[in-house]
């Protein structure tokens, strides 16, 4: 009996003094059963995602301000909606806008909000480049990168769930949790960046998304090559939150080859882009 209590003590001590071991459900993904896979999205989840995305979008607009230039807004929306027609999330209404800043970047908020900075547009030379950037951001939304990371979903309304909540006790009010999640989403966009595999998925997605919509997916490569030369304050956030350009360019080229895309047969719309840029002040 004494031996048993010593054992108990040792075990507790061992567990408390453990090195930085992380919860390993993620380390051993093969343990995961299909039932634990992200459940099918419900209509309520979509609504919750949009509600969340609006909050993030309002913060982005609060930070940079909207670039109010109707012809340019229209052009960006036309390019965006051309891509959105080939989105795999028809439940979302995509919104496109330009942020009034010389910083070079683009942002996506869950629920379909896509923002491109004026600084980024200034660096572009054809429509396929703009399409590439929009498609990349669309990839973050369609891949639900923020939604999955922060577990944004509607609260379950079933009786069993209600009972379980009652037993489990909701310590954190839903409202605080929501605001905290918005804070975290902003951190992702401005400080920590998406997970590396999410960026890769968005880049790969951009290639396919552009190709199916008829845009040359190499536009994104050209854009990257150009902005990788630009150093300084305008790309500070972008550089901090994204993987190195060389690696991304290689990956994009590989994706184009793998999907056997004939870039020459696809459109860059250089003239139409130039025409649209004239409206810019």
């Amino acid at each position: 009996m004494r031996r048993a209590s010593v054992l108990v003590f040792l075990l507790v001590l061992m567990s408390v003094a453990m090195p930085d071991a992380v919860m390993s459900a993620d380390d051993q993904p093969w343990r995961q059963r299909v039932s634990a896979a992200p459940p099918e999205m419900t209509s309520d989840d979509v609504t919750e995602e949009i509600r969340f995305g609006r909050e993030v979008a309002a913060r982005l607009l609060g930070r940079y301000g909207l670039y109010a230039n109707d012809p340019l807004t229209k052009y960006v929306n036309l390019v965006g909606q051309s891509l959105a027609a080939y989105s795999n999330r028809p439940e979302l209404k995509y919104h496109f806008a330009v942020l009034n800043t010389s910083e070079i970047n683009a942002y996506a908020a869950p629920g379909g909000y896509i923002f491109i900075t004026k600084g980024a547009i200034d660096k572009m030379q054809d429509e396929s480049e703009l399409a590439g950037v929009i498609a990349h951001e669309m990839g973050h939304i369609n891949g639900k990168h923020v939604v999955k990371e922060l577990d944004i979903k509607a609260t379950e309304g079933s009786a069993a769930a209600g009972l379980a909540r009652l037993i489990g006790g909701g310590t954190e009010s839903a409202r605080i949790a929501f605001s905290k999640a918005v804070d975290k989403a902003m951190d992702t966009l401005f400080t920590t960046g998406y997970k590396r595999e999410d960026e890769i998925e968005a880049d790969k997605g951009s290639v396919m998304q552009c190709a199916v919509a008829g845009y040359d997916p190499a536009g994104l490569i050209r854009y990257f090559e150009r902005i990788s030369a630009a150093k300084g304050k305008s790309t500070e956030v972008l550089d901090k939150t994204h993987p190195a350009y060389d690696a991304r360019i290689i990956l994009l080229k590989d994706s184009i080859t793998a999907a056997a895309i004939d870039t020459a047969a696809l459109k860059t719309y250089k003239e139409r882009f130039a025409e649209a840029m004239k409206t810019k002040k």
Partner: peptide, 14 residues
């Protein structure tokens, strides 16, 4: 009960 991971491939619990 209490349980934790000791190494990447070993966990213990009581």
């Amino acid at each position: 009960s209490i349980a934790g991971e000791l190494t990447n491939s070993l966990s213990a619990g009581l």
